[in-house]
């Protein structure tokens, strides 16, 4: 297992290199630059600006400079949009908020999603299943940009229980975590139910049942193990998405997280910030997919680390 993990970590280096290189050149080929704005400036001033950010150098020089700064100093460069911040600072500033929001939402999603999925699978095709599954489907049908404002109208504006937006006190955390959590809970519930059903029909479960194992033991000891496989595969990228923040949720609730930077940096052509967020996301997705692969082996002893 350690050899497996060590090799995967080694593989990460070329993967990251490809991601950085591809992104670096992709953003440069997109029309519009960081200094285009509605009010045009003079060509001379533009040249000064480009010189300031080193954007006047030949592209391959910019590329090698960028790589050098990362490898030697861990320096992701300066944001062109937020003049007063470096990309490192922006990420350090906003990642904790995103992790907090993501952690809360993830907890909600897992607790709600897994329990709903297991209950629905065990009581398959009963009223309980239909009710639970309908709730899950509703969660899937209602997009966050509808659910968020709806929750605000009910719980912040009419009932006054929680805040409409912001990220200062605990009242601010409730609605955004719920909004984000419910969406993922719905997906997890559906996948858990599907995965469990698959397993509950398998021979070894029948064998266990025939041997007189208790129902709870069958479900938690045997069925959940196999049933969780698809959920676990889904969770790798899902967790990376949750933890790096959500553009929609952060905009609706005015949360100072990283999610908005992923989208806005592309819109602003803030090259360094695009790259910084992409690298962060890449590291997360690679690590989480690694964790997923390890967990999958652990869930299913028949698998081996290859």
């Amino acid at each position: 297992m350690f050899r497996f993990i060590a090799r995967r970590l080694l593989e990460t280096i070329p993967v990251l290199f490809i991601i950085v290189t591809a992104t670096f050149f992709m953003v440069r080929f997109v029309p519009g630059g960081p200094f285009d704005s509605e009010k045009a400036t003079t060509p001379e001033i533009r040249a000064n600006l480009e010189a300031y950010y080193g954007l006047n150098l030949p592209l391959h020089r910019q590329y090698t400079n960028y790589l050098k700064a990362i490898v030697l100093h861990g320096d992701l460069g300066r944001s062109t949009k937020y003049a007063s911040r470096t990309v490192n600072e922006i990420i350090a500033d906003k990642l904790p908020t995103s992790l907090e929001l993501g952690g809360l939402s993830l907890a909600i999603a897992l607790v709600l999603g897994l329990s709903a999925g297991v209950i629905a699978a065990v009581r398959r095709n009963t009223k309980v299943d239909y009710i639970v599954s309908s709730f899950a489907m509703t969660g899937i049908c209602v997009p966050t940009f509808v659910l968020g404002p709806l929750l605000v109208l009910i719980f912040a504006i009419h009932l006054g229980w929680f805040s409409a937006s912001g990220w200062y006190v605990w009242q601010d955390r409730v609605l955004p975590s719920l909004t984000l959590g419910i969406v993922y809970a719905a997906g997890i519930a559906r996948l858990t139910r599907g995965g469990m059903l698959e397993v509950l029909n398998q021979d070894y479960i029948r064998t266990a049942r025939a041997k007189g194992a208790s129902e709870a033991r069958i479900i938690f000891r045997h069925a959940l193990r196999g049933g969780l496989l698809p959920v676990v595969s889904y969770l790798g990228p899902a967790i990376a998405g949750i933890l790096t923040g959500s553009f929609v949720i952060e905009t609706i609730f005015q949360i100072p997280g990283l999610g908005r930077e992923f989208v806005n940096s592309a819109f602003n052509r803030d090259y360094t910030l695009v790259l910084g967020t992409v690298i962060l996301y890449a590291v997360l997705i690679i690590s989480l997919n690694l964790v997923v692969d390890v967990v999958q082996v652990w869930l299913n002893p028949k698998l081996k680390f290859e």
Binding site: G103, A107, V111, S115, V232
Partner: peptide, 22 residues
């Protein structure tokens, strides 16, 4: 909260844990 989430995943603890207040 994060530990709780991980624990949920790893120990198949799908029961009814009380959510910590944020």
């Amino acid at each position: 909260a994060v530990l709780l989430a991980t624990a949920t995943l790893l120990t198949f603890f799908a029961g009814c844990s009380k959510k910590d207040s944020p």
